Amino acid sequence: MKIFRNINFPITTSIGMFDLLKGIAMLLIVFGHNRSIFPTMKLDIITRYTNEGAFRYIPYVYEASIFGRLCFAVIGAVVVSLMPALLILSGYTVRKRSVSKCFSLEYKELLKPYLWATIATVVFNFIFHFCFFRYIPGALQESAKVLGGMVLGFSQNVQLGKITLFANGPIWFVLALFWALVIFNILLNMMDEEKIKYYALGLSFIGWLLSYVKYTPFCLSQGLIGVLYVYMGYYTRKSGILTSEHSDKLIVKYTLFVIIPNIILTFFGMLTEMADNVYSLGPVTYIENGLLGIGVLYVFLRINKTNNGKITNALRYLGRYSFYFMCIHTVEMIAFPWYLVAGKFVKYQLLGFVSVYIVRIILIFLMLKVLIRIIELYNRIKIRKTIG
């Protein structure tokens, strides 16, 4: 129990206390998407329609010892819990507002940037496609597929007859978060607070059922499941779970009923992959992943208090602007044909994977700096006009 005691102490809340975790999550999101363009680096082969184990086909892991695969499962469980953890974080900062005010606020903070990211993605997709293939009709056709998928909010590629609509990429999270926050605020306004947990659980169940519907637009399935995660965040703030010290008995229970089950689920490939609407054991997996996400937040808050080096501060910077980071990542991921670059490393997959990953992180970081400067300049001009 010593390892738990070292991180089991009360802390006070502070501005930016979750930035470190969000920064690490952003790097891992790019890491996960980068591996998709390198076939032999693919870490999981699992869908809601198959029973293939997530670790069965991993290079160097399949032939590893049980202990080696178990260690990989521990890491995998933490990584899988990060997306639920980000939704839980959003619930942690929720404040009750009128329905109209909440909708207006979330429209401004989430939907408007989503629309701007959609425009940027379509424009740059056309530009890059034309530059690489020199064929305007083809560039228009590909850009139309991107536009259709993003406007309709499909988190996966959709085939409508002969028409293909492309997935909206990492920014699916923004649409899901919009629905989760708006719906949860409606619950706060209309329901007895003691009963909200039952409504949140019921809505998440409906969201899971919708994951089996072939065409569910606007990421509504993920949004309904996100309502449960937002409630988890709201509850943890009200109960002080993340800032308090907990008894050994509670830690043992959490280990037995949350940590160990998550490791077992991950070991056998039973994952939650919200972007792909994959919930291997339905409510079991997404609830367990959410509960583990709370534990991950608890640990990272303590790490955040004790680490202030250059690397951790750089990660905090990415976390502070994680929303912009995700928008930029969407643009570069969908608009730029990274698969052509990956094709140059057919014989050197690991080298290509690392090289492209580093380039993408540097590119996103530079674009993030530019975007922040533009936003700051715009805000200054707006303030001057208001004063004038």
Rank of each mutant, 00 (worst) to 15 (best):
V146C: 14
L350H: 09
Y317F: 13
G269N: 02
R373K: 10
G269R: 00
L301N: 08
S239Q: 09
L318K: 01
F166A: 15
I251G: 02
S36V: 13
K2D: 15
I328L: 14
Y57M: 12
A180T: 00
S239V: 04
N262V: 07
L203A: 05
R384F: 08
A200Y: 03
I375S: 10
V359P: 06
L368H: 05
F166P: 00
A200S: 15
Y357W: 15
V80R: 07
S143Y: 02
I196T: 13
F126S: 04
R69C: 04
Y321P: 01
K145A: 14
L351E: 14
L292T: 06
L315I: 10
G343A: 13
T386G: 09
R380P: 03
F205A: 12
I15A: 15
S98Y: 02
N262E: 11
G53P: 02
W172G: 04
T266R: 01
F173M: 14
P84Q: 14
K145D: 10
P113E: 15
V299I: 15
I364A: 08
N34I: 07
L152C: 12
K2L: 14
I11Q: 11
L224Q: 07
K344R: 13
I334Q: 06
V252K: 10
T47H: 12
L188P: 00
I260Y: 06
L28F: 05
N8Y: 05
I136W: 13
L368I: 06
S81V: 07
T266K: 01
L140N: 07
I119A: 13
G68I: 04
W172S: 15
I328Y: 00
H129M: 05
V146E: 04
V94D: 07
G309L: 08
Q159V: 13
V227C: 08
N313M: 10
R302F: 08
L250T: 11
K347Y: 11
W179H: 02
A314I: 11
S280D: 08
S204K: 08
R56E: 12
N379M: 10
I287G: 03
V78P: 00
F345G: 08
V79E: 12
G169P: 01
G223C: 13
L224A: 09
S143E: 02
A73L: 02
H246L: 12
F184E: 02
N185K: 01
Y321H: 07
S155I: 01
G293Q: 14
I58T: 11
A54L: 03
M150F: 11
K101M: 11
V370I: 12
L220H: 05
R237A: 05
I66W: 11
G161V: 09
T306W: 09
I374K: 07
D276F: 05
G32H: 04
